[in-house]
């Protein structure tokens, strides 16, 4: 097994450029959850010049809709959802400063192109292991679109959250074609 690269958010251009598809990484710091409808709203906000609920520059978006936390717990199960459903929206967010996404599965050609053009990466983490992954989350707070319930935007603090670089900024992928 190769060495695990430790990364801290927000990510810099240098962080992103140093990563290769297949690299094992651990993420520490703030990441933001957003799924389908939240992506639609974020893109609409950009189009209409509205302020976004969080700073996109250097940010990591986690495609995740967690289960409710039991009393006294930070969060419930919190694994990734299918990344490709966000393909129509991710390029716009990348063009506006997003540096990384965290999900599961494949990304389309437009996203891969945007990763190269603007310098960003896509991480994959273990799908269907929401109990295990919840252990790396130390705090969770809904910061926008509360009406969406599980799909609201949450600010998560994570420590050593495990992932692999699935698509890097040079156009490489961990998935065999």
């Amino acid at each position: 097994m190769s060495e695990i690269k430790k990364l801290t958010s927000p990510l810099t251009q240098a962080d992103v450029r140093s990563l290769k598809a297949g690299d094992q990484v651990s993420l520490t710091g703030v990441i933001y959850t957003a799924r389908d409808i939240a992506h639609k709203r974020l893109c609409k906000a950009i189009d209409s010049g509205c302020e976004l609920p969080f700073e996109l520059e250097g940010a990591i978006i986690y495609f995740c809709g967690p289960t409710p936390a039991r009393p006294g717990r930070v969060i419930g199960a919190a694994g990734p959802t299918t990344s490709s459903r966000m393909d129509a929206f991710s390029p716009k967010l990348i063009a506006n400063g997003l540096k990384a996404m965290l999900g599961k599965g494949y990304r389309g050609a437009e996203v891969r192109e945007a990763l190269k053009k603007y310098g960003a990466v896509h991480f994959s983490t273990i799908g269907g292991a929401g109990a295990l992954l919840s252990r790396y989350i130390t705090s969770a707070e809904v910061i926008a679109y509360e009406d969406l319930g599980a799909e609201a935007v949450r600010k998560l603090k994570v420590v050593d959250f495990p992932a692999v670089v699935a698509y890097d900024a040079q156009g490489r992928s961990v998935y065999s074609s």
């Binding site: 809709g65 289960t67 717990r73 199960a77 919190a78 959802t81 273990i126 269907g128 292991a129 109990a131």
Partner: peptide
């Protein structure tokens, strides 16, 4: 290793009462 993590996930879910997956 991934299969081990999935087995570990099942153990944590049962013991700590955290759903196996966020998509319940």
């Amino acid at each position: 290793k991934i299969l081990n993590q999935l087995i570990e996930n099942a153990r944590i879910a049962k013991e700590d009462k955290i759903p196996l997956c966020q998509d319940t």
